[in-house]
């Protein structure tokens, strides 16, 4: 097993930085360009949510852990922001608490589409953890 840990302030300019780091880490599994784009997007969604919803553009820290196990990449994204009251509702396509900011409410739907598994753990007032995983290579392609 290989792993990496990263911590960044919750600022929007770090979104692309985290995407690049995760892509470089995942590259060891020799993913296709498409798979890599999917992972980058899922990470981008979770990190953006922490900046936009958890900390509401105020100060905060985002922690990103990633693990490589055989053909599987697992990514965990933690914030200590405001948390999610109703996780089932948050997962619904088109649900957004910030329509005034032109959010589409598709972030979780995209994460679920692009990763094999997406877990959301959240405590209102304490923070949120997103844990997602995706397998690469032959095993995945056979399933399609």
């Amino acid at each position: 097993m290989n792993y990496m840990m990263l911590e960044v302030p919750a600022r929007s300019e770090n979104e692309s930085f985290v995407r690049v780091v995760i892509a470089a880490f995942a590259a060891r599994l020799d993913p296709t360009l498409e798979e890599l784009n999917e992972v980058k997007t899922a990470v981008s969604e979770a990190v953006t949510n922490s900046i936009l919803h958890a900390y509401e553009d105020d100060r905060g820290v985002i922690k990103i852990n990633a693990f490589l196990n055989d053909r599987q990449l697992t990514i965990e994204i933690y914030d200590t922001g405001k948390g999610i009251e109703d996780i089932a509702k948050a997962r619904e396509p088109l649900f957004t608490s910030k329509p005034e900011l032109e959010r589409s409410g598709m972030g979780f739907t995209i994460m679920e589409n692009f990763m094999d598994e997406v877990k959301i753990e959240s405590i209102p007032g304490k923070g949120t953890a997103i844990k997602m995983s995706k397998s690469f290579g032959r095993a995945v392609k056979n399933n399609h």
Partner: peptide, 10 residues
């Protein structure tokens, strides 16, 4: 070269 859900809203 890249787009996420922010692109959908915008």
């Amino acid at each position: 070269t890249f787009m996420d859900s922010s692109g959908i809203g915008a």
